[in-house]
Amino acid sequence: MNKIKNLADLRDLKDKLQTKTKLRDKSENPEQMVQVKVAMATCCIASGSRETMNYIVDELDKRNIDAVVTQTGCMGYCYAEPTVEVIMPGKEPVVFGYVDTKKADEIIEKYIKSGILVEGIIPVNYKKIEQ
């Protein structure tokens, strides 16, 4: 480790290190950010949801979008795996089906960035007890 010689050094280092703890800061106020939930049950993992999740996390980071990506249990749409739920701040959740990395890219570019809905939406037919 080279010594930190001035304030600029420290800030460079901080920028590099921030990804280490950024997730912990974000989790304090998730409702103010884009929340992405990737279904991660056995069926989803078998259909490649882990690749989808990794892709979404990396891409959101690359495109400088503040978002919290969490995994969740089976949403029940096992025919359409991998499924991904996106909650924009202050909006109703939207569930997308058959989300491979290509679809994920489209969701990020169109829906998350500019609010344009893309194909592949699964009509949500349930309510959650916690809300």
Binding site: I4, L10, L13, K14, L17, Q18, K20, T21, K22, D25
Partner: peptide
């Protein structure tokens, strides 16, 4: 490093 990442020093 984790301290620096959270505005340390």
């Amino acid at each position: 490093e984790e301290y620096i990442a959270r505005d340390g020093y």
